[in-house]
Simulated scan of single mutants.
Amino acid sequence: MIRAAVLALGCALGGPALALSCLPPDVAETYRRAAEAEETYIVAQGRLTFDPARLPSTDMIPQQKPAHTLIPARLTGQALTKSGFDQAFDRAITLDVQCFGPWCASAVPGTEYLGFLERRDGGYVLTVDPCGGMGHPDPTPAMLDKALECLQGGSCMRTRR
């Protein structure tokens, strides 16, 4: 009886372990990535709206998933200037939802986002991936302050969690 239980446990655990390991998302790190990129970025925070039925699903069944799912979206809030999040921002954007193998990013419509938006072809794109990407949902005042501090040339180091 014990041998059967051990054998069953061994079979259950004997397959390959699949896990995605990501560093916790950090506003300072995201800011530095955007600042060092060849592409042009703006920083905005606000409510993200889109059709959630267009999100790719996450499951461990091997299948062909697109690396990028482009979803029409809207971000309504404020863009960051040297004096803070004080410029009205209400625009149609593209939400670029990326998958890494079986893991896909997710987003929830109506959620507040701090987004680092890439300017592409006259519009803006917010890229999210399973490790966070260029968007931070439900930003805290400290996260917004860190983005402003980075823009103003202050300390732009990873914040401790």
Results as ranks from 00 to 15, higher is better:
residue 1 M to L: 15
residue 1 M to G: 12
residue 2 I to Y: 12
residue 5 A to M: 15
residue 5 A to S: 14
residue 6 V to R: 14
residue 11 C to Q: 15
residue 14 G to K: 09
residue 17 A to I: 12
residue 17 A to E: 10
residue 18 L to R: 09
residue 20 L to M: 12
residue 20 L to C: 13
residue 24 P to E: 15
residue 26 D to Y: 05
residue 26 D to V: 07
residue 27 V to T: 08
residue 29 E to G: 09
residue 30 T to V: 15
residue 30 T to S: 04
residue 32 R to D: 07
residue 33 R to F: 12
residue 34 A to W: 04
residue 35 A to H: 04
residue 38 E to C: 09
residue 40 T to M: 08
residue 41 Y to P: 00
residue 41 Y to Q: 00
residue 42 I to N: 02
residue 43 V to S: 01
residue 44 A to C: 06
residue 46 G to Q: 04
residue 46 G to A: 06
residue 47 R to W: 11
residue 48 L to R: 04
residue 50 F to P: 00
residue 54 R to I: 10
residue 55 L to T: 06
residue 55 L to A: 07
residue 56 P to I: 12
residue 58 T to N: 08
residue 60 M to L: 15
residue 60 M to C: 14
residue 61 I to G: 08
residue 62 P to V: 08
residue 63 Q to V: 14
residue 63 Q to M: 15
residue 63 Q to I: 11
residue 65 K to E: 06
residue 66 P to T: 14
residue 67 A to N: 08
residue 67 A to W: 11
residue 67 A to F: 14
residue 69 T to N: 11
residue 69 T to M: 08
residue 70 L to R: 11
residue 70 L to M: 12
residue 71 I to H: 04
residue 75 L to I: 09
residue 76 T to W: 01
residue 76 T to V: 07
residue 77 G to A: 05
residue 78 Q to W: 03
residue 80 L to G: 00
residue 83 S to Y: 02
residue 85 F to M: 07
residue 89 F to D: 01
residue 90 D to F: 06
residue 91 R to S: 11
residue 93 I to R: 00
residue 94 T to K: 03
residue 97 V to F: 06
residue 100 F to G: 04
residue 100 F to E: 10
residue 101 G to Y: 06
residue 103 W to F: 13
residue 104 C to Q: 03
residue 107 A to L: 04
residue 108 V to G: 07
residue 108 V to R: 13
residue 109 P to N: 12
residue 110 G to Q: 05
residue 111 T to V: 10
residue 111 T to F: 10
residue 114 L to G: 02
residue 116 F to K: 00
residue 117 L to Q: 03
residue 118 E to C: 06
residue 119 R to Q: 13
residue 119 R to A: 14
residue 120 R to E: 13
residue 120 R to H: 12
residue 122 G to R: 06
residue 124 Y to C: 03
residue 125 V to F: 05
residue 129 D to G: 11
residue 132 G to P: 03
residue 132 G to M: 08
residue 133 G to K: 01
residue 134 M to I: 10
residue 138 D to S: 15
residue 141 P to Y: 05
residue 142 A to Y: 06
residue 142 A to R: 09
residue 143 M to D: 08
residue 143 M to P: 01
residue 144 L to T: 04
residue 144 L to P: 00
residue 148 L to H: 01
residue 149 E to L: 02
residue 151 L to S: 01
residue 151 L to W: 00
residue 151 L to G: 00
residue 153 G to T: 01
residue 153 G to A: 03
residue 155 S to K: 07
residue 155 S to R: 08
residue 157 M to F: 13
residue 158 R to T: 08
residue 158 R to A: 09
residue 159 T to Y: 03
residue 160 R to V: 12
